[in-house]
Nucleic acid binder design. Structure first.
Lengths: 333, 333
DNA sequence: ATCAACCGTGGTATCGATACCAAGCCTGAC
DNA sequence: GTCAGGCTTGGTATCGATACCACGGTTGAT
């Protein structure tokens, strides 16, 4: 067992008290120049790495934040995690990550495990919370940030944007550009609450314009992932409704699937039909697809969440932090 | 401040010693049925959540593993993280995540921050390590797992597959199917060591078949991401070498870019030209692209790494754990 | 010249859990 | 009937750092 060097070892070598070593690390300005250099030299010499678990115990500040995500394997949350992680590390904090794989039953267990590490704050990507979860969170006094949506009643702080409004805006955009037979593909999965909200925005926009909404799939098709879902659903959609002149997709991935299927069927986009996506990540960037989409600032959500965690008082003044989105019009509409 | 319930509170309510509470949580079989139920009831009643930081201090087992990844925002590592996280959580461990954003200078700092949490083990996705990093890792006695490659001299344990062999195999596959003018796109970025290895495999396969390798880009094009890089590079490639009959891509994303550009130029895949990718994630799945690719078991790498961390002795017996890959032939070759 | 205020410094208690050791109880064997 | 040995149980020390308080020495004001 390679024994860890302790603060006392450093203190002895530098001929100071342990507390002085602690101060050199946390509040160097309160230590005289001479001793500080002695201590720093001793730290270097011994290769001392402080033990934050011990520090957490005595100061009741762990300098760790916890995150519970549905999945890491989705550029959607991945960008946010990158933003979170980078911002937090710059401030001297670490990120404890747990993924639930979209299984809501795991959430409470995961939260319990997270709380056992006494984090200074928590980030949640999940949308609805069991009463066990709510109870646990109520009992603690640390900041809780919900991301990627704007609940009307946030648990504590929310950072995101309105999925409903995004769906509404895109539908309006299609309507304004002359489309009259607009289908919506994806968003039929009950667990994807955010996708559902976008679909509702779409529905309301069509209704208020006097148009009939057409949606695929209505049943839960969790087995299919983005691109495949898009291709398969578009095919079905065409069978039922051959005169569709616009397809609004729940995600960029789905939109890519639609575009592929369209090109295979010689449907000319955008002349015969418009297609829109959602996300604004790589797949929709100025590439072969040139997809009109809603660009969501995933990384920014991470950064804003980190700021909220680091300064919860300021964030709580707002409660709900809207980072917005951007409708990016490109070649498919 | 919502005060945390401590083990002593539980012990007092259940009328036992604190140590008995500890045993109920860690080794319940050593506690009599009656007391165990009393303690469990008290835990439930008080909503007690144990403090693992305190436990880590006294047992010098943190039940946390650290991971340093280049980026979360890449399905490549994301699947591995999912596998890691799931397997570790099932065993009662947590994952401390740090991303370096492909900046090798951050690695040492990140590692230092990670070690300050006294993890029970570490996972690295980075390929080469500075001497500072090596020194830090030498000083500790915890398992260190390097993933997604098979270094000849692993620091401790390695879990992955041979990128060189994967490149070689795919090139052989193209040669065997009759291609004679095979270009390689991507993998020119010096920081992407794994891509470079695949490209070397390609080069050697061509050489040993008496064919001339053709590669784009040779300069560092970090600014372009996958799809765009594929589209742009393919264009240049065609200008220089219009008779190319196969394009081997460093990743599926790049391959998608190539396919898009090909379809725009009315190049018929696979009749005029074959295209292959690497990765085997969503984008290459049975979708519109039907891409021939090398499928890498990203999730499996995570699971195997977790096992190695949990039982380092068994893993060290192997040192290098090869999870392999699969050449998936589909419609583009 | 005297005293208050302040700065740098160290000693000691403390955070919440677990390791270690010792004690009490019960069972079974002689 | 007595004693050994196994089982459960609790007391106390401990992990490594920080909070709190107290001390000596210096500075500035009166």
């Amino acid at each position: 067992m390679g024994k860890w060097v302790t603060m006392k070892d450093v203190a002895d070598l530098a001929n100071v008290g342990t507390i002085t070593v602690s101060r050199v690390l946390r509040t160097p300005e309160k230590v005289s120049e001479a001793k500080r250099q002695r201590v720093e030299k001793a730290i270097e010499e011994l290769g001392y790495v402080p033990d934050n678990t011990a520090g957490a115990l005595s100061s009741s500040k762990s300098r760790v934040f916890g995150a519970i995500v549905s999945t890491v394997n989705d550029s959607v949350f991945a960008q946010t995690l990158d933003g979170l992680s980078s911002t937090l590390r710059a401030a001297g904090y670490e990120l404890l990550l747990t993924s639930t794989n979209y299984n809501p039953e795991v959430e409470e267990e995961a939260l319990r495990a997270l709380l056992a590490r006494r984090p200074d704050g928590i980030v949640l990507t999940s949308t609805s919370h069991s009463i066990g979860v709510t109870k646990l969170l109520d009992a603690v006094s640390i900041p809780v940030v919900e991301v990627w949506q704007l609940p009307s009643e946030p648990l504590d702080i929310a950072v995101g944007f309105s999925n409903y409004q995004a769906g509404y805006d895109m539908a309006r955009h299609l309507i304004n550009s002359g489309c009259e037979n607009i289908a919506f593909i994806g968003g039929g999965c009950a667990r994807d609450v955010r996708g559902l909200r976008r679909r509702e925005g779409y529905k309301d926009a069509l209704k208020s314009a006097g148009l009939a909404p057409v949606m695929w799939p209505n049943e839960d098709q969790a087995a299919l992932t983005g691109i495949e879902l898009g291709a398969a659903s578009f095919e079905k959609c065409l069978n039922v409704n051959p005169h569709v002149d616009a397809v609004m997709c729940v995600s960029d991935q789905v939109a890519v699937g639609v575009l592929c299927e369209a090109s295979r069927r010689d449907v000319d986009v955008p002349n015969d039909m418009s297609v829109s996506g959602f996300g604004g990540f790589e797949v929709s960037a100025p590439s072969g697809f040139d997809l009109t989409t809603i660009a969501v600032p995933g990384y920014e959500i991470g950064v804003a969440s980190a700021r909220a965690l680091l300064d919860p008082e300021a964030a709580r003044a707002q409660k709900v932090i809207d980072v917005g989105y951007k409708l990016v019009e490109r070649g498919t509409t």
